[in-house]
Amino acid sequence: DFYRCHTCNTTDRNAICVNCIKKCHQGHDVEFIRHDRFFCDCGAGT
């Protein structure tokens, strides 16, 4: 499962994972996106 962060203006080409929300995007306006054509390269392994 992935998310888009409207606060940081993520686009259709990138998304964030749950670990990104916990570490970098906590309290931001995020939108849940189940699956799409992207991956998270944060290195958290999710």
Rank of each mutant, 00 (worst) to 15 (best):
1 D>M: 14
1 D>E: 14
1 D>V: 09
2 F>H: 05
2 F>S: 07
3 Y>A: 03
3 Y>M: 04
3 Y>E: 04
3 Y>W: 05
5 C>V: 00
5 C>S: 01
5 C>H: 02
5 C>D: 03
5 C>M: 01
7 T>S: 08
7 T>L: 03
7 T>M: 00
7 T>D: 03
7 T>Q: 06
8 C>G: 02
8 C>L: 00
9 N>M: 12
9 N>Y: 14
9 N>W: 06
9 N>L: 10
10 T>L: 09
10 T>S: 12
10 T>A: 11
10 T>G: 14
11 T>K: 10
12 D>K: 15
12 D>I: 09
12 D>A: 11
12 D>T: 11
13 R>V: 11
13 R>T: 11
13 R>Q: 13
13 R>W: 07
14 N>M: 06
14 N>K: 14
14 N>I: 03
15 A>S: 11
15 A>Q: 10
15 A>L: 11
15 A>H: 07
16 I>D: 04
16 I>L: 06
17 C>K: 02
17 C>N: 01
17 C>I: 01
18 V>C: 09
18 V>D: 08
18 V>P: 11
18 V>A: 12
19 N>A: 13
19 N>Q: 15
19 N>P: 04
20 C>P: 01
20 C>Q: 05
20 C>H: 01
20 C>E: 02
20 C>D: 03
21 I>Y: 12
21 I>R: 05
21 I>E: 03
21 I>A: 09
21 I>L: 09
22 K>V: 05
22 K>I: 08
22 K>H: 08
22 K>T: 08
23 K>H: 11
23 K>P: 02
23 K>C: 06
23 K>I: 08
23 K>D: 13
24 C>M: 12
24 C>Y: 15
24 C>Q: 13
24 C>L: 14
24 C>S: 15
24 C>K: 12
25 H>K: 02
25 H>V: 01
25 H>N: 00
25 H>Y: 00
26 Q>N: 08
26 Q>C: 05
26 Q>E: 09
27 G>P: 02
27 G>E: 07
27 G>L: 04
27 G>M: 03
27 G>D: 14
27 G>A: 06
27 G>W: 02
27 G>T: 08
27 G>I: 06
28 H>L: 00
28 H>F: 00
28 H>W: 00
29 D>V: 04
29 D>A: 09
29 D>W: 02
29 D>C: 05
29 D>E: 13
29 D>G: 02
30 V>G: 02
30 V>L: 08
30 V>I: 12
30 V>S: 06
30 V>M: 04
31 E>G: 05
31 E>H: 01
32 F>Y: 11
32 F>N: 15
32 F>I: 15
32 F>A: 13
32 F>W: 12
33 I>S: 07
33 I>M: 07
33 I>V: 11
33 I>T: 08
34 R>P: 15
34 R>K: 14
34 R>T: 15
34 R>G: 15
35 H>A: 12
35 H>E: 12
36 D>M: 08
36 D>L: 07
36 D>Y: 07
37 R>W: 11
37 R>L: 10
37 R>C: 11
37 R>G: 14
37 R>P: 11
38 F>H: 13
38 F>Q: 12
38 F>E: 11
38 F>D: 09
38 F>M: 12
38 F>Y: 14
38 F>G: 11
38 F>A: 13
39 F>M: 11
39 F>Y: 08
39 F>G: 14
40 C>H: 04
40 C>T: 03
40 C>P: 04
40 C>K: 05
40 C>F: 00
41 D>F: 06
41 D>V: 11
41 D>R: 09
41 D>S: 12
41 D>N: 13
42 C>L: 03
42 C>R: 00
42 C>H: 10
42 C>E: 03
43 G>M: 08
43 G>P: 03
43 G>H: 11
44 A>N: 06
44 A>Y: 10
44 A>F: 11
44 A>L: 09
45 G>M: 07
45 G>Y: 05
46 T>C: 06
46 T>Y: 09
